[in-house]
């Protein structure tokens, strides 16, 4: 009976402490100790990540394919800027963003190598000037956004994550729509009007959702190519599946765009 009472006392005390800590964590009171613990464990996380990804690097041919895709998008952007400057309707000038390189130290997937990761953990945080909502890219290709942040590390939610959603357009016809992650590495270009013409193989770029604080995806980042189109005349919109040129599982370094 005494033993049962001891169990109960310990349980109640620990529950109360947990609830207190939960309440305190909603303020910034515990940010310092949390950041310290993350900083201490960061090298261990990095070591685990490197061990599980020692053989997974982007191949030379894949790298060349990525460069080619990005160059096509860049040429398209330059043509647009050139036209805008000649028309004198748009300035085409934006604040120059800063690029902060960040190593991936964690890529949790249920079964690594079989399940698709939905988030990355990177080794840069508030200390480097990163803010929640900043875009994360690799060679001008959209990777994701910073969703959680501490002093020395951050969580990147990938564009394939089911909570990821942003506006996009096609390169050839400037067809607008919304990119929705579906989880499992699947990206859908949704809410496209039935009257619009989508083409398989067409590049999809970000439309730009940068807010007044400079947070969000800038325009003309590569999202991917249209892989298949689902056009049902009885539906309100058509949708397309997008394939990113990046294999997210093979990334070890990304860049955070900060204004």
């Amino acid at each position: 009976m005494q033993k049962k009472r001891n169990f109960l006392y310990v349980f109640i005390i620990l529950i109360i402490v947990s609830i207190l800590l939960f309440a305190l964590s909603k303020t910034s009171f515990l940010d310092g100790p949390k950041s310290f613990v993350q900083f201490v464990f960061s090298p261990v996380q990095s070591a685990f990540f490197n061990i599980t990804h020692f053989n997974q690097k982007i191949s030379q041919s894949k790298d060349q394919e990525i460069d080619k895709t990005v160059k096509i998008a860049d040429i398209n952007k330059l043509e647009g800027d050139n036209k805008a400057l000649r028309d004198q309707f748009e300035t085409g000038s934006e604040k120059n963003p800063n690029l902060i390189p960040a190593r991936i130290i964690g890529e949790p997937a249920f079964i690594p190598g079989f399940s698709y990761p939905e988030t990355f953990i990177i080794d840069e945080g508030k200390d480097s000037g990163i803010k929640e909502g900043d875009a994360v890219i690799y060679k001008n290709i959209a990777v994701g956004k910073i969703s959680k942040i501490s002093d020395f590390s951050s969580v990147v939610t990938l564009i394939t994550n089911s909570s990821s959603s942003f506006t996009a357009k096609t390169m050839s016809g400037s067809v607008s729509g919304i990119i929705n992650g579906q989880g499992g590495g699947v990206i859908i270009f949704d809410n496209v009007l039935l009257s619009e013409n989508l083409k398989i193989g067409d590049l999809v770029l970000t439309k730009g959702d940068v807010n007044t604080n400079g947070i969000g995806f800038p325009p003309d980042l590569v999202v991917g190519k249209i892989k298949s189109i689902n056009k049902n005349p009885s539906a309100l919109f058509q949708k397309a599946e997008i394939e990113s040129p990046l294999d997210f599982e093979k990334l070890s370094l990304v860049f955070v765009l900060t204004q």
């Binding site: 169990f7 310990v10 349980f11 620990l14 529950i15 402490v17 947990s18 609830i19 207190l20 800590l21 939960f22 309440a23 305190l24 964590s25 909603k26 515990l30 949390k34 613990v37 993350q38 464990f41 996380q45 959680k148 501490s150 969580v155």
Partner: peptide, 25 residues
């Protein structure tokens, strides 16, 4: 075991960027 669960939960919350105390609870 309760005490272990409590501290391991706190560690998981810290490294997993969750609110402290959630996993422990």
């Amino acid at each position: 075991v309760y005490v272990m669960g409590f501290f391991l939960g706190l560690l998981l919350d810290t490294l997993g960027f969750r609110s402290l105390g959630l996993t422990s609870t």
